[in-house]
Every structure is written in structure tokens, then in C-alpha cells.
Write a protein that binds this DNA or RNA. Structure first.
Length: 273
DNA sequence: CAATCAACCTGGGTGC
DNA sequence: TGCACCCAGGTTGATT
């Protein structure tokens, strides 16, 4: 579900609402814990700490705690992180509740139970970050850097762009959108792009991610922001889930294929192989 | 290496 | 209405 724009939207909501708040307790629910370690140890570790700041790296959300540790959440496909009043009854999808001193909860809800929670020290965080490529919206990512990254990959372009160790934050929706904007076919070899194509791709990636953030993310079914509200970017998508509809540029029907094992949307006229 | 696929889960949609 | 099957925003690990 959530890709960089959705995670960033949640981050901003949480930063606004609960930074400075204090964690007074936690409770796990349901089968298959979101936390792989000892749940009681987790709860003991975090209780009493305040939330200094909410950060994001790629698709990971980080709650930086006053005790120096980090609660690291990955929402995977259907995870949500939503602030609710403590007296609100729990949704059946709730897997973890973090209780706040302000009388609110931060609840992890997740239909498919893929979402993960970790508790890391700065060292653990550094190790996690090391496994991720650069942030697409940072000044680190230039067309040259993008070309450098892709030049070492012998895979297809879409598969490479989805690889979080090469670039952190893109998922299936925004990759399809970026490739459409850049007018490049997802099956092109990652290493074969011209300078002009790299420039277009760089600009397209940043454009679609920023547009996703500006419209508070894409909601098809599960995604919600930090306050439980759907995003609106689904109304602005050009090709994703628009199979058979006319290409906004040339009118040719959008086709759906399978690339890198994922459903992939392409304008066959604008995006040549 | 890279491509493919199954697995982790649940629910929605489709076709018979 | 029921059932079988495919699909879904992600990632990882096994297999070919």
C-alpha cells in the first residue's frame, strides 16, 4: 500500500499531532505479532519515553524516542498508523496500540498483517539506512547519480526502480506513473538510458512523488493518513489502474502487462521499448 | 547475477 | 448463493 508519498503524509500528520507526547503504555493484539521480539520487553523499553520526532526513510516511519531508541514501522501492503482517542473502541484490524499521555492512542491497523515494528538503537538504524538507496526527493539524487545507480544494474528498469537498495521509496504505483511521465518503457534495460532519458526520469520521479505528497497519497482501499482520512491522489493517476482508458497524452488505450512480477500499466505508443 | 515464484494474510471482484 | 480462482500498495527467501 503505502509508498513514499503515503508514508510521508503520515509522518507529517504524526509530527504535527504527537511529537512531544509521552508513551505511557502499549498493547499488542491478534495473532502473528507485528513485533518479532519479546512483546513485554518492547513495552517495558518504550514506556515512559516521549516522542522527540517522527522521521521517514524510504517507506520506513521512525518514532525517535527520548530514551535514544527508535520505533521503526514498515506498513507493507495494508498497514495504517492512525491517531485515535483512547476511548474509541478498537477496530478489529488493530495489532498494536501505543498509549499516549494526551489521552490518545497511536494504533497500528493492518488487514493483511504484513506490517512490521522494530525497536532499534542508533546503530541499528544506521545499519538499516545502509541497506537503502538515496532519498529520491533529496538533493542527493541528481540525474547523474540516478544514471550512476542504474548503470550498475543488469536488470530491467522497473525492477531496478522498485529495488529499495538502489532508490528508497518508490513502489508499484509511482514507478508506473514516473515511467509514463518520462516516456520510457518499464522493460528497458536499466543501464541503457541516454542522458536525456535520465534527465526526464529524474524529473518524473520527483514530480510524481511530490504530487503524491501534495494530494496526501493514493487511496484505493486501505490507505489512510495519520488521522484516518483517505488521500486523493488516485484521481490524478495517469496510467496506474487505468487499463483500457485513453492515454492522457495520445489517446491510445493504456495496457496492463506484467513486469518484474507486478501488474504494470503502460501507454504502448508513448512508452516504446 | 537475474528472473520467477511462493510465502506471509485477508478480502474483493469475477466467472461459472 | 456458492465456489474456485485471480488480484492487490511490499519484501524476503528458495529455486531455476
Amino acid at each position: 500500500m503505502p509508498e513514499l508519498p503515503e508514508v510521508e503524509t503520515i509522518r507529517r500528520d504524526l509530527q504535527q499531532e504527537i511529537s512531544g507526547d509521552t508513551l505511557i503504555g502499549a498493547e499488542f493484539f491478534g495473532s502473528r505479532s507485528a513485533y518479532s521480539g519479546d512483546a513485554n520487553a518492547f513495552i517495558r523499553q518504550i514506556a515512559g519515553s516521549s516522542i522527540r520526532e517522527i522521521q521517514r526513510r524510504g517507506k520506513y516511519l521512525l518514532l525517535a524516542l527520548s530514551n535514544g531508541e527508535y520505533i521503526v514501522v514498515h506498513l507493507r501492503m495494508t498497514g495504517r498508523l492512525i491517531i485515535r482517542q483512547s476511548d474509541e473502541p478498537n477496530d478489529r484490524l488493530v495489532r498494536l496500540v501505543l498509549r499516549l499521555a494526551s489521552g490518545r492512542d497511536l494504533r497500528l491497523e493492518d488487514l493483511r498483517k504484513f506490517a512490521t515494528v522494530e525497536l532499534l538503537t542508533v546503530g541499528g538504524l544506521a545499519a538499516l539506512f545502509d541497506r537503502l538507496g538515496p532519498e529520491p526527493l533529496s538533493s542527493e539524487l541528481t540525474p547523474e547519480r540516478l544514471g550512476e545507480i542504474l548503470s550498475h544494474s543488469r536488470r530491467g528498469l522497473k525492477a531496478s526502480l522498485l529495488d529499495q537498495s538502489l532508490l528508497a521509496g518508490l513502489g508499484n504505483i509511482y514507478v508506473d506513473e514516473a515511467l509514463f511521465h518520462a516516456r520510457i518503457h518499464p522493460d528497458r534495460p536499466a543501464s541503457g538510458l541516454s542522458t536525456a532519458e535520465l534527465k526526464r526520469l529524474h524529473q518524473a520521479i520527483r514530480h510524481v512523488l511530490q504530487a503524491g505528497i501534495d494530494t496526501r497519497g493514493t487511496t484505493f482501499s486501505d490507505y489512510r493518513d495519520g488521522l484516518g482520512r483517505p488521500g486523493t491522489h488516485q484521481y490524478q493517476l495517469q496510467v496506474y489502474r487505468r487499463t483500457g482508458e485513453p492515454c492522457p497524452t495520445c489517446g491510445e488505450p493504456i495496457i496492463k502487462t506484467r513486469v518484474a512480477g507486478r501488474g504494470t500499466h503502460v501507454c504502448p505508443r508513448c512508452q516504446k521499448l
